[in-house]
């Protein structure tokens, strides 16, 4: 008997996914990581499928990782970056999405600065919509690769204590990780400046700490978040210097976590601001390996959602 993966058309967020669906992707990513380790990285999984990346924000790792994941599996890929698209001529999001959809696209991978943009287009297109980051809402594929890395290194997720530290308010990575980790049974602590802590975040099932030391106590995993310079201009933090002094992850603060705590960061890293170069390079840090895992996880996602059909076949 086939195992039903999902009957959802789109991957919009971990918010609305079940633990079973998440685990299914993580397991499938393991096979993909094996493929990535081969000399010839080419499989026929997505042969004949078309994938379009539609990015309304700059991105290096996410976009390239989706593109390579598609190519490794023999898909046809096209990349739309807004700077050189009809968006500059005033085309609205729905019309752009429909245009791409009508070209025979199987998956649209979208990144957008506004929360809910993938949800909006998903109602208008036949293609599967994969959210590659929407505003402050979610970045589900990043959280899935974080979960994959944690599981790979720690052997499990349930029962682990995970500290997410930094700018929680503006972080879609934090939100997706909170949903994913709590669904898989981890205990999540969040820490950061009060001005960057969203209201009622505790109601999402996490513990909130005003200092990162407290959030770090006995952590098995640390997810360090990027702080953006714009936050200072908006009056949310006094300066990057002060941020680094009170909220940066350095060797002294690392002591509060477990000695073998895993250090993750979604990138890009501001060295010397939210994390010191020393901590970034230390042997507990898997920040670079996260990037590799990102390709494996995205291969799994593209495969599972184009199969899409897993659910339909199962009905027979």
């Amino acid at each position: 008997m086939r195992i039903l993966f999902t009957n959802r058309k789109d991957l919009l967020g971990l918010k609305d996914m079940t633990a079973d669906e998440i685990n299914y992707i993580l397991n499938s990513a393991q096979t993909m990581k094996y493929v990535l380790g081969q000399k010839s990285k080419k499989t026929p999984h997505l042969s004949g499928k078309s994938i379009v990346t539609l990015f309304y924000e700059n991105s290096t790792r996410t976009r390239v990782s989706f593109e390579l994941a598609s190519k490794y599996m023999s898909a046809n890929v096209a990349n739309v970056s807004v700077a050189s698209s009809s968006v500059q001529k005033g085309e609205n999001l729905i019309d752009t999405a429909i245009t791409i959809d009508k070209m025979g696209t199987d998956i649209i991978v979208i990144r957008h600065p506004q929360s809910g943009a993938p949800h909006l287009i998903s109602k208008y297109v036949k293609a599967t919509v994969v959210n590659a980051g929407d505003g402050m809402n979610e970045h589900p594929t990043q959280a899935l690769l974080d979960l994959f890395t944690i599981k790979e290194k720690k052997g499990k997720i349930e029962g682990l204590k995970v500290a997410i530290i930094g700018d929680i308010e503006h972080s879609r990575v934090a939100r997706s990780n909170i949903y994913g980790l709590t669904k898989l049974g981890a205990e999540v602590a969040v820490g950061g400046p009060a001005t960057l802590m969203p209201k009622h975040i505790e109601k999402l099932g996490v513990k909130v700490y005003p200092s990162i030391q407290e959030a770090l106590i006995d952590a098995d995993v640390i997810i360090n978040l990027r702080i953006q310079l714009e936050r200072q201009k908006a009056g949310l933090i006094p300066s990057l210097r002060e941020y680094s002094r009170f909220f940066g992850l350095d060797e002294k603060r690392l002591i509060f976590a477990k000695p073998d705590a895993l250090i993750l960061h979604p990138g890009p890293v501001n060295r010397g601001v939210e994390i010191t170069s020393g901590v970034k390079e230390c042997e507990q840090s898997f920040i670079d390996e996260q990037v590799t895992n990102g390709v494996a996880v995205r291969m799994a996602i593209l495969y599972l959602y184009t199969k899409g059909g897993a659910g339909i076949e199962n009905i027979n």
């Binding site: 929360s115 809910g116 505003g135 402050m136 809402n137 969203p198 009622h200 975040i201 109601k203």
Partner: peptide
């Protein structure tokens, strides 16, 4: 509104 829902949806409250 700034509240649980804005946090949940990632919208500015």
């Amino acid at each position: 509104n700034e509240g649980l829902m804005s946090t949940y949806l990632g919208l500015k409250g």
